[in-house]
Design a protein around this nucleic acid. Structure first.
Lengths: 209, 209, 209, 209
DNA sequence: AATGAATGAGGATTCATTCAT
DNA sequence: AATGAATGAATCCTCATTCAT
């Protein structure tokens, strides 16, 4: 089914990808019909099936390419920065930039998580992101920059906090990225550094584990 | 449409709620048909519409009642604890307990966020949760326990980190709650305390600990 | 299925008949569900099926009883009037009175005509009415009061004009019965008397009056 | 929803309109399912919804187009006839022709009157027909050809008589149009001319009003 | 007599996908 | 490459009717 596409064909294909992503994000995957997508573009239904195997296929492609795109940006932003914590900061800031630019995609991955056939690939994509962060964290621990803890867990905490802030303030709200980034970075780095104790300091002696 | 229900009727109704939640969570809202729900219960299709206006209505009810249930548990856990940071810790721990018990519900709110008709109520539910946390944070700031910062943003960071950890380790993984709770609490409290700086401390050498 | 009914039972039964007739007339037969009927009366569904075999059965009974009721009134009005044309006038006036009183029933017979299972009985009812009129007309012709013509056809013309006036001015409009009756009687008697010619009198000059 | 239709598409659409009208007329609107319509045509269910928004929509279109069609014929028959009474006669004769040709449509408007959503448009259609007749009657009154009376009421009486004759002798019976037309025209013109008295001439003095 | 509960066939409608042109 | 037309399984929902109590 891989077609050789003319430049014009590639443009068409991208146009469909973009429009579909927009509609899926706005109304949801299921409530958006193939008919609506092609109608919005003012083309016949045949066009859609010329470029994509199926609606599901299209959605998977949107998922994959957006996760790749985000990762590319993160890596470009990190460059060859030697300080692992600084790398994390740069990654967070780059992510937030990307999230702002592609805020409509939030809903897509949210949704993908809720149906098994999509959740699988979503999990793979996420694993890559978590891996990246985990590597930085391990290095920071090795350097003694942050206390030893399960790095994967920290990575998830970090990613969770960042995404949620992004969703709230860049997608639903419209707060300047830098402001969100400052809070995110501050919170996350604080969390990484302070993570030794499992409870409120001082209210009672920290539980040793 | 409010019906007077006999005890038997109430039981049936609850049975449908539970089974539907399970199926929605497992396969997704759209891929789960009303027919499947009633078939699973071994009853006729009419039964569903005797107890619920529509599939959508049922879903909204699941959403609402689960968010209420969670909040009830949080408040019970917090009790009249005077220390605001300790209240947050207790809230996080209670939430994680609840998440473990109701892990299948994760997908439901994930999904709800992706379609406007559901997103509306989801946002309202979430606002309540964020408000609760925000109140504690303000108090902690007034007491000088944590640095001054936008409390709502911190609340979102906190909630995001907690939920993501829960989803990862309680839903997809099967890590003991306490362990996850310790990391979550540590990360969050660290994040709250350390939030003053907007970047990596230390182009200068890392603070020894 | 003929039940022996207590007085209370008979009242209940009539209550259902009345309420159903009202709802059928207002919304149509199909759009009115048995559930709505019993809900309006504030009783359970069992009540309905205690008194009637089926929805269809109920409808047929309404049809039959209203046509009987109308005929009773007509005959009472006519009494033993010897003049056949006068009998027709009295019949028309009585009918219009009845139509005003039971205007909601118009839609029921309209509807009944559109589905075979009901049309059959409707036709029988109508045949009785047409027969009555036809008898008067034959007598009037025999007496030389009106020109000879197919009496059944005249009867239908008469009935059609009367009913349509009733529907328009007593059901949709709210004109005094007497006024409608005067026009109806005038038109109908004129029609009966003038019926000799099959076209416009007067390529020749219009008769001055 | 306006589609651009190819000639083939237009033919299909018309085919559906015709078949549906036939079935609705024969069995009634509700007892005729969309499935039956498309099955009769030997096409898939989707075809129906390609050409019509809904079953209701289709029905409304049948109603509208048939009333337009009838009116077109009436006007063509009347041409520029100067005599208003002659115009009425021509209109009646043309209508009866049309009724014979489209006798199956009788039930449709009968039915339409019984449900509010359809009754509305039916009333509008009817108003046009009554208006046409009313104009002729006013002219005839102005010319002194017929006695002064409420022209709209006469119009309704006329229309009622004509339609009822048509329904009885062209739809249920199978009498030659001309015969029915002669009776109808005779009756109606008689009715118009004789309308001065509100009661039986001679049985007793006419009631003055 | 009466109720709430249950049944399940049937109905309108949607929609991903395929086809003929 | 592209279009309008067609397919038909699947979906949500309704409703007359029956049942258990």
């Amino acid at each position: 089914m891989k077609r050789k596409l003319t430049p014009r064909g590639r443009a068409r294909r991208q146009q469909i990808l973009d429009e579909a992503a927009r509609l899926f994000a706005e109304r949801g995957y299921h409530p958006t019909s193939v008919a609506e997508i092609v109608d919005t573009l003012g083309v016949g239904k045949g066009v859609f099936y010329w470029y994509f195997e199926s609606k599901e296929d299209l959605f998977l492609e949107i998922l994959a390419s957006s996760s790749q795109d985000l990762r590319r940006l993160q890596q470009a932003a990190i460059g060859d920065e030697p300080d692992p914590l600084r790398r994390i900061e740069l990654g967070i800031r780059a992510s937030l930039e990307w999230f702002r630019e592609h805020r409509h995609l939030f809903n897509l991955s949210q949704f993908a998580a809720t149906e098994p056939r999509f959740a699988v690939v979503l999990r793979q994509n996420d694993a890559v992101a978590i891996d990246d962060v985990t590597r930085h964290l391990k290095e920071a621990m090795a350097d003694g920059r942050i206390p030893d803890q399960d790095p994967a867990m920290l990575a998830h905490a970090l990613v969770g906090a960042t995404r949620h802030l992004a969703r709230t303030y860049l997608y639903h709200g419209d707060v300047p990225v830098d402001l969100v980034a400052d809070v995110a970075v501050g919170f996350v780095l604080g969390g990484l550094l302070g993570g030794t104790t499992g409870g409120v300091r001082g209210a009672e002696p920290p539980q040793a584990r």
